[in-house]
Write a protein that binds this DNA or RNA. Structure first.
Lengths: 144, 144
DNA sequence: TGTTATTCGGATAATTTTATCCTATTTTAA
DNA sequence: TTAAAATAGGATAAAATTATCCGAATAACA
C-alpha cells in the first residue's frame, strides 16, 4: 500500500511526537532502533520530512529531531504520505490509466472510488497526536 | 496500489474475456496493443495467470489466450490480484509490522481495517464479466 | 513435410526502490 | 580551542520491479 520509506516516515513521526510532548529531542539512532529501520535510509526520509516542514531537526551535540508540540495534533497522516509517496495512492487510477475520470473511466473506476475516498478521508482525518497517544498508553506498537 | 504487473494482468484478463464471449482467442500482440503494455513483460504475466488456472493458453498458429466462457462470471478480481501481487494488500499491516493484529496492533491498525476490508470485499465481489461488459458497451476504457 | 504463427522459458538489461558508507557541517561543552 | 555528538548530503551498492531479447517448443495448414 505505502512504500517502505513512507512506513518508516509515519512510524518515525509518531515516535518523535511522543518525545516532543516531553520536550525531548530524539536522535536518528534512537528513532531507527525504536521503529526497527535501517539508520541511513531513515536519515534520508527524515531529511525529506524536514524539507516539507513536517518535523524539525537540530544539528550538533544535543541535537536531534522534534516536532512543534502545538502542531502535533494538527499534522495529518495525509501530509506525511504526501510528502514521501505523493498523492497517487488516492488520486491515481487503480489500473494506471493516464486519464481516468467520470468521462473516461477505467473498468474499476467506480468500484475503486469508495475505497480510495475512504483511504483519503482516513489519512486526512487522522492526526499524529492520536497515534502517539496509543503508543504511549501501550495499546499500539511501532515494531515486531 | 497494485503493481504494474497486476494492472496489466487485470486489463489483459478483461480483454481476453471480451473476446472469449465471441469464441475468439487473442494473441499476446493483440493484448499488449489493446491495453498499451510492453509485449514481453505482458507475456510473463499471462504465463503466470495460466499457471494459476485463471486463463488458458493455446500454442501454435491460431493459438492465443482465452478464458472458459462459463467461468468468466465467476472469476473474481481478487483471484487475479492474488495470483500476481499476493494477498499483502488486504492482509498485510499498513505500516509493515511483521505481526499486526487485535492483540498487537500497529498505530493505524483499526483505522486501516475498514479501508482494507472495503478493498477486500470489492475485489472479492467484482467479477470479470461485469468489467468486460462495461468495455463492450463503451462506458469504460482499457487505455489512455 | 516445411513454413508460419504462436506461446514458453531462460538470460539479460534498465529502472526504481531500498540500503549503506563516508565526509562535511554544525553545535555543545569541557 | 578542541573534542565529541549530531544532522546533511553526495556517492555508491544491493535488491526488487519492470522490461527486452532470443531460441525452443508447439500447432495449423498449404
Amino acid at each position: 500500500m505505502f512504500s517502505k520509506a513512507c512506513e518508516y516516515g509515519i512510524k518515525a513521526s509518531i515516535f518523535i511526537s511522543l518525545n516532543s510532548y516531553e520536550e525531548k529531542r530524539v536522535s536518528l539512532k534512537a528513532i531507527a532502533k525504536e521503529i526497527n529501520s535501517p539508520e541511513a535510509f531513515t536519515a534520508k526520509i527524515l531529511q525529506d520530512l524536514v524539507r516539507h516542514d513536517i518535523i524539525n531537526s537540530v544539528k550538533g551535540a544535543h541535537g536531534g529531531f522534534e516536532i512543534d508540540k502545538n502542531a502535533i495534533s494538527s499534522i495529518k497522516l495525509s501530509q506525511i504520505v504526501n510528502a514521501i509517496d505523493g498523492d497517487d495512492i488516492y488520486k491515481g487510477c487503480g489500473l494506471g490509466l493516464h486519464t481516468c475520470d467520470e468521462n473516461h473511466p477505467c473498468p474499476v473506476h467506480d468500484k475503486f472510488k469508495s475505497v480510495r475516498d475512504e483511504l483519503k478521508n482516513m489519512l486526512e482525518q487522522t492526526n499524529l497526536e492520536e497515534l502517539a497517544l496509543d503508543i504511549k498508553s501501550g495499546i499500539a506498537f511501532l515494531k515486531t
